[in-house]
Design a protein around this nucleic acid. Structure first.
Lengths: 146, 146
DNA sequence: AGGATCCACAACCAAACGGTTGAATACGAA
DNA sequence: TTCGTATTCAACCGTTTGGTTGTGGATCCT
């Protein structure tokens, strides 16, 4: 417990069975029993998987008599993609600035991106900056390690 | 091993320390030692985390003397977002069709989406379809469970 | 009421995870 | 060659994970 939502979401989708459940739920809602028919495991196991997905906020369950139909909850997916896209974008921007540099067109807008190591090279100047722009600072600030 | 790349990628990002490493690498490349300074854990532990990120394809390492600078590899991030977006989109489409239905405007383009359970209701007709449109079928086909 | 169905909880187990420490490897510098 | 630095490998350890079986609680149907 005490684990943030992003971690729960990534953990949830890290399991192939759970990703497959998500895939199935994307086309139609389903009950635990219906889902369990598709997998070579007990219904209790599927129930556990659904619990993980539910606690991650990816799935919610209503009640319909004795059945507990599950359906996908899109919001947390957005959380994940925005996290991923943020850093992918930064990485790609850095990459294209480097490309511009290597192409020789070193105008001043890209010139400050000098520190890099493509095939060789060595220029790691600023260390210990702690960047602090993230939602989950794992050191002392949020207390991830120990 | 024998675990698909999508699983490795989600597993890798499920850990807050590893997400923070990704965040740091998105602004500049760094060596193991540089990264390790920021976390309350040994360098060996950070090295393990980097190994996970590397095997997931999210990070690659070059060699610069005795140093092993790490940098972000954007492709696998795309893999993840496209997986997520695919099912989020399907879920939202289904959701809006339902909205249209509930709004009473049941024209024939939305009328076939009848089976749903919003607050009550019961209409789970087609089961056992196996959908088979996913990249990781966890039952007998790829052999995820046991 | 009684039985059948759907599902969750509890206890258990093997394997994986996230950390540790200690030793080994690879490279640069003297 | 020897020393120091950067990094990894190996063994170990406590906790979590993903499965099992068994049991029990709701709920529907006679």
């Amino acid at each position: 417990m005490a684990v943030d939502q992003l971690s729960r979401a990534f953990v949830a989708l890290a399991d192939p069975t759970r990703r497959d459940i998500v895939a199935r739920l994307s086309t139609r809602d389903a009950t635990v029993g219906e889902l369990a028919e598709s997998y070579a495991m007990s219904m209790q196991a599927v129930s556990k998987h659904l619990k993980v997905l539910e606690e991650a906020g990816l799935v919610s369950r209503s009640r319909d008599g004795q059945r507990r139909p599950c359906h996908l909850e899109p919001q947390v997916f957005d959380l994940m993609t925005s996290w991923i896209e943020r850093y992918r974008r930064q990485a790609e921007e850095r990459f294209s600035r480097l490309d511009a540099l290597l192409a020789g067109m070193s105008d001043d807008t890209t010139a400050h991106a000098a520190a890099h190591t493509t095939t060789r090279g060595a220029a790691h100047g600023a260390r210990n900056d702690h960047h602090t722009d993230d939602t989950d600072p794992p050191q002392q600030s949020e207390g991830v390690p120990s």
